[in-house]
Design a protein around this nucleic acid. Structure first.
Lengths: 235, 235
DNA sequence: CAGTGGTCTAGACCACCAC
DNA sequence: TGGTGGTCTAGACCACTGG
């Protein structure tokens, strides 16, 4: 029914958040406290909280509690702005953490996408990115080092776009993008410090050079509540 | 824990679906049956099923049961193909149902976006679209009738793009797109016959004529599991 | 260590669907 | 009308976080 109890609770918090009585980042009372206040069991309280999470209004930190979600950042792939740039332009503090970096032989799949021989060495980069201290995405990047000799010796927690421009006089140009709304696979959820199975946004991006060679392949998993995609198509 | 019981159940069904032992559209056993078979309570069974739903592997029809999700359709806004065309090209059977159609005065918001006076008559169109009998999206469209005189007398469960081309010699050209992963608001969930609060994909699209006038504003709510967005950016 | 969320049990009643 | 999912109660134990 439309007037179920968890829905009441949902509306209650939704209104508080909309009115900004509960501000971004605020911690909600514990599930048990909420249950006591509204005379509901934890199961029912959690139903409401989980729905609010699906709406993107609140989020949880593993065993730490529930928090009000900050505004989503707008991502415009056509702008060719780096993460650092578009986040800070929108008033957030970006941060990138390198989780892993290594030169490794290309798998069949990557080799095929890159148009190179299988087992050709490529640079693999695994990063986690934050907005205002909150981890919002993890990404796995496969870089075509044939086109970018020496890149593996660079500092790779910075913006790749900037590095390409400064060191190699290359610019991001053409790209193929795939967006899919799905739940976060457990590896991504773990890296983001959230429980697996939560909603997320998956992005695949292939960046090309001006002569149509594959520069880089990027797989990103975002918290679903952290980003809005905006694109202008002009023929 | 990684080895919680609902996760076991999740993996069990995930494997069956991946192997296609459970085919698209198949109904799962009832929650009580699953619980009996695995010696679990319904709460636990539902936890697993809800996670599989978030992953997009299964979906539910209100009080009818759980079903295996069919493959997602690929939507490429830059292709300027109509829904009917890209769905059928990908092997699905598209269907559009008109829920409502009326000429009405523009709200302040719509008027501003369209660059017209408030209260100017516009055509409002509310449709539901299906793939293989399954409702996958609802859309609300606001059409600038100043640019399209007489359009309100046309049959509007067909493709708008085609109508524009044939009757008005207009083509979709430039557009602004916003994608957001969020839960379905209750009106959209009801129209799609699913329980409110489920994950969904929200799309806002503004279509322009070649002389930069707003032709149409479109708000779509998709089932999150029914679509993948694919875009190629070529400068 | 106390308190939190994460997981789970064993029931219950209701609204709705298909037969 | 019997079976389904939707909602809910009143507990419980565990793993982890924070002070």
């Amino acid at each position: 029914m439309l007037n179920s109890q968890y829905r009441h609770l949902q509306t209650y918090f939704k209104d508080l958040i909309r009115q900004k009585t509960l501000k971004a980042g605020t911690k909600l009372p514990s599930e048990r406290e909420i249950g006591e206040q509204f005379k509901l069991t934890r199961v029912t309280v959690r139903q409401a909280l989980q729905n609010l999470e699906a709406e993107g209004l609140i989020y949880r930190q593993n065993r730490r509690g529930w928090f009000v979600t900050p505004p989503a950042v707008i991502y415009d792939p056509a702008s060719h702005l780096s993460f650092n740039l578009y986040v800070s332009k929108q008033g957030g503090i970006p941060h990138t953490e390198k989780l892993m970096q290594q030169v490794e032989p290309a798998t069949a799949e990557i080799a095929q996408l890159m148009g190179i021989q299988e087992h050709t060495p490529i640079l693999f980069l695994h990063r986690r990115r934050y907005i205002d201290q909150r981890p919002v995405l993890i990404e796995k990047i496969y870089i075509n080092i044939d086109l970018l000799p020496g890149i593996e010796k660079e500092e790779l927690s910075q913006s790749l776009g900037q590095l390409l421009k400064q060191k190699y006089q290359l610019e991001y140009r053409d790209m193929d993008l795939v967006f899919k709304s799905t739940s976060l696979p457990s590896h991504a959820a773990n890296d983001l410090g959230i429980s697996a199975g939560q909603a997320g946004l998956h992005i695949e991006r292939i960046n090309y050079t001006s002569d149509k060679k594959v520069l880089e392949i990027d797989y990103e998993f975002w918290r679903h509540d952290a980003m809005t995609i905006k694109i202008s198509l002009r023929d």
